[in-house]
Amino acid sequence: MSETRTRPLPLAGGIAATAAARARTHERPGKTKIEAVNFDFYYGSFKALDQINLAIPEGEVTALIGPSGCGKSTLLRAMNCMHARTPGARATGLLTIDGEPIYSDEADPILLRRRIGMVFQRPNPFAKSVFDNVAYGLRVLGERNSKRLAERVEWALRRAALWDEVKDRLNATGTSLSGGQQQRLCIARTIAVEPEVVLMDEPCSALDPISTLKIEELIADLRGSFTIIIVTHNMQQAARVSDHTAFMLMDPETRAGQLVEFGPTAQLFTSPRDARTEAYLSGHFG
């Protein structure tokens, strides 16, 4: 799969530049991709995230775990400015991608989202054909050449391990696929534009075990090509797919989400430093 990644990209502009940036950063492994420094997030007067400090390494899989209401989805969505249309949502502190602040007057959420893709909890393909679903992001970027579109769509569908199942029905509606196929279609749609970061918000919670397994295999396969951040309720899943794990918890008094512990997945699961992490992992609460 690595040769597909290093192949010169047929798209001009943003995507090629993105790929070049990725090629550069791969020379320096262990670089921080997304970093939060004293990051707070508010819904109106309610503080949903309190003093988050975390550095997400590039090209690896980071899992955000924690009980319901601990703010892990809020943190994930904050990385993509998905709260832009929520009235009263605002951020303070610093959240950066490649050192550039995500929340600043100069930052454009639309340009940001072209670098950071997102896969949602419930598969949400458009009521369009399989082909048009995957081509959507490319068309947003202005690609009109049908030959290059077809190439990129096939590339993305192969990458999402869906090509063999849908190659004969690219014109079928995306919503006519099975739930697991729809989710892989959404992943194909996301990676078609080769984002630098892929955010996944509980991508398997609406899927059956076999589809879940396929998505997990896919995440393992995409690891290295993309910086992946996955929110999951399922601790086993976090242990299976991620290199790093962040454990979050809601402060019982302020109800604000806090980061309890962040570290390599193996270390966090086997010898957690914080007693609350250990209690959660051993099923004592949450």
Binding site: I110, G137, T190
Partner: peptide, 26 residues
Amino acid sequence: PNAVREAAMAMGAPMWYSTLTVVLPA
């Protein structure tokens, strides 16, 4: 469904584009 708008938004589509290509057809 809002999920459809969010999907288009997460693809980096400006709002007018997602309204025109995704929301109105639906």
